[in-house]
Simulated scan of single mutants.
Amino acid sequence: MRNNQSKISPLSVKRVPYSPRKTVQIKYAQSGAKSLPVVIMSNDNKLDLLDWLTENESLWKKKLHTDGAVLFRGFSEFSASQVSLVLNKVCKHPLEYKERSSPRTKIDDKVYTSTDYPSHQEIFFHNENSYQSSWPKVLMFYCRLPAQCDGRTPIADMRRVFDRIPQPIKENFHKRKVKYVRNFSPTHGLTWQDVFQLEDKKQVEDYCRKQAIDFKWKDESQLEITSVREAILRHPETQSLVWFNHAAFFHVSTLGEELSKNLLDYYGQDNLPNQTYYGDGEPIEDEVIATIRGAYEAERITFDWNQGDVLLVDNMLFSHARETYSGNRTIWVGMGELCYSKKHLVDSLEQ
């Protein structure tokens, strides 16, 4: 059973005045600790989060884009429309979820359910949309209902993941980049209509051309797209190098030995729903992907969701995942502040 008292490590506590009778506590993780970087807790469950964010904008924005993740806890709960208001506060320009990689349900304007996969399926670490030429800088998660058991959203600091990956692997990916091959079919996973949120093939083709995506129609309902993207980028605020890609997430071996074998037997290497290669098209060795997965796992940070929690994540500094769970679980997500790969390129792997 889940523990309602989340294991958060408060190593440094600071009180921030909101009004003469209302305060919040800000808890910082110790350097190197496997706990949430920043937790901002209200001592009054009627305190409106949107009001607090407005009053203390410079504080939480600085912490978000340097520490990488901020959890807000103990504030008043809110409806779907109010979630949109909070999203508009934390993101300059909230984004639609396009060029999708997972099924989601739209809740309100630019607010969605987290991935609608069955509860027994774990979702590996990833930075949202890092396989695209542009991506959201800020993610917002809202816990409407925590799972009865498990269902956490682990996060991992991509600066530390980068440091853990052996230098030869980093240099190889920096030089060769990552190639993504995705196949969309009515019989497995997402259709091209789901992915692009479009019904017209010409519109899809125009989108692909603008985003440097090669496309091939295999028949009337099946589409293959390929793109080559950077593997390592530089974070704009901290100037840190970050491991930022879907190389491990989309690699078939990450699905586990049994499922990956079944998919390869059924589809063959060329028709997998998702697969990654080096940018020159050569296969990425399974042992290399295993090493990369190990770097993510070594930096895993977990916490128990409480109802009403809001988690802000700098999408370049932290990846996120999902544990399996039992019982009902409702997490809503929004994203915003579009970033472009060409603005964060890395000339050298020197820090």
Rank of each mutant, 00 (worst) to 15 (best):
T105Y: 05
Y18Q: 04
H120E: 03
P168N: 11
L259S: 01
H188M: 10
R176D: 02
Y278L: 14
L53N: 06
F124I: 01
V161E: 10
D314G: 08
P17Y: 02
S185K: 10
E77P: 01
F72Q: 03
E224V: 08
K201T: 09
V346W: 11
C339Q: 13
Y142H: 14
T238W: 11
N274P: 00
H320K: 04
L259I: 06
N328I: 12
Y117F: 06
I165K: 11
L190R: 03
W243A: 11
E171V: 09
V242R: 06
S81I: 07
F78A: 09
V39N: 05
T302K: 10
E297P: 01
D314Y: 08
Y266V: 13
D116L: 00
V310M: 07
Q148V: 09
V333H: 04
T66Q: 08
D44K: 01
K177G: 07
R329G: 01
D108S: 13
K106C: 05
D150I: 05
F72R: 03
V178A: 09
D347T: 13
M316C: 14
S101K: 01
E205N: 13
Y142F: 15
G281E: 06
E287G: 03
G336L: 05
R329W: 01
F173M: 11
Y267I: 08
C143P: 06
V161K: 06
L259W: 01
T238I: 12
T302D: 08
R322G: 00
G308A: 06
F250P: 10
K175W: 01
Y131N: 12
K137N: 11
E57L: 00
D280P: 07
Y325N: 02
W192V: 04
Q132C: 14
I40S: 02
R209T: 12
S114H: 02
L312D: 08
S326Y: 00
T113V: 08
Q82C: 01
H344N: 14
P94C: 05
S76V: 08
S221E: 15
S133R: 14
F162V: 09
A290H: 12
R159W: 04
Q351F: 07
I165W: 10
N3M: 06
R329Y: 02
V313G: 04
S79R: 08
W52A: 02
S221Y: 05
I331C: 07
A80C: 03
M140W: 02
A248M: 13
E99N: 13
F249P: 07
V13L: 13
D150M: 10
R152H: 09
F141A: 10
S240I: 01
A321F: 04
I40P: 03
C91F: 00
K137G: 15
S130G: 13
K27T: 09
F244K: 10
K218V: 06
G268S: 12
N43K: 07
E171D: 12
K201F: 06
M158D: 12
V39D: 04
L145E: 15
S76M: 07
R2I: 10
L349P: 07
L349T: 11
P236T: 14
V204T: 11
L95Q: 14
E96Y: 05
R100H: 01
M158Y: 03
V38W: 03
E77S: 10
L64S: 03
S133F: 12
I232D: 09
L345F: 08
T66R: 05
Y131P: 09
L64K: 04
G327D: 07
G268R: 10
I225D: 03
V70Q: 03
Y142K: 03
S260T: 05
T302Q: 09
K210M: 04
E224M: 13
P186M: 06
E99P: 02
E55H: 02
